[in-house]
């Protein structure tokens, strides 16, 4: 058992535990902060898998952007009055049935895959320069998805501002 195995189990356990806090916490803000821990742990998993640039992007966009946006949403849609922002749960029985069944199915499928047939040894990617590969790829093979993503972000920006902004009724 090498050091990277121990780190993988550590961060995977951290991700699952904090995701469970998101699931079981009654307080919305505690859920949001547990989500930060989940995203950071998943970023660490990306680093262990040799995807450093994706890990940095995950930290910058999810932790720095999306969670802040979610917390803004919590603040703007609740009366802040000193008492805790709690939310109830419903459909517990069906959640256990659906998610338990799906998880069993996924585990069954994962253990049935013959990973030896897949190419590569599954070794570490130490020594390779991922960022350079990603940059060249984004500007050559993946230029069309890259531009489409840029347009999608522009549309989402304008759409979000239009939907959430105030409208002048006189016009």
């Amino acid at each position: 058992m090498t050091i990277s195995d121990i780190l993988f189990y550590l961060f995977a356990g951290l991700a699952v535990l904090s995701a469970a806090v998101v699931l079981f916490s009654r307080n919305i803000l505690y859920s949001a902060f547990a989500l930060v821990v989940t995203f950071l742990a998943v970023a660490a998993i990306y680093v262990l898998a040799g995807a450093e640039f994706v890990a940095i992007t995950q930290i910058m966009i999810y932790v720095g952007g999306i969670v802040v946006l979610l917390i803004f949403g919590v603040m703007l849609t609740n009366k802040i009055s000193g008492k805790a922002l709690v939310t109830e749960a419903h459909n517990k029985f069906w959640a256990v049935v659906v998610c338990g069944g799906l998880f069993t199915l996924l585990l069954y499928g994962i253990f049935r895959i013959n990973f030896a047939l897949l190419s590569g040894s599954g070794g570490t990617t130490a020594g390779t320069n991922n960022v350079q590969q990603l940059g060249i790829g984004l500007m050559s093979d993946y230029i069309l998805p890259f531009e489409v993503a840029a347009i999608l972000l522009l549309i989402a920006l304008i759409g979000a501002a239009t939907i959430a902004g105030y409208k002048n009724e006189n016009q």
Partner: peptide, 30 residues
């Protein structure tokens, strides 16, 4: 690679459970 897949399956099922059980729209988004 199985361990990554199993971690992903666990996270997926927890996210699914959050979507099904929570009543607040923002927590569903989480």
């Amino acid at each position: 690679i199985e361990n990554y897949f199993i971690l992903s399956a666990i996270l997926f099922c927890i996210g699914m459970a959050v979507v099904i059980t929570r009543k607040n729209a923002i927590v569903v988004l989480m």
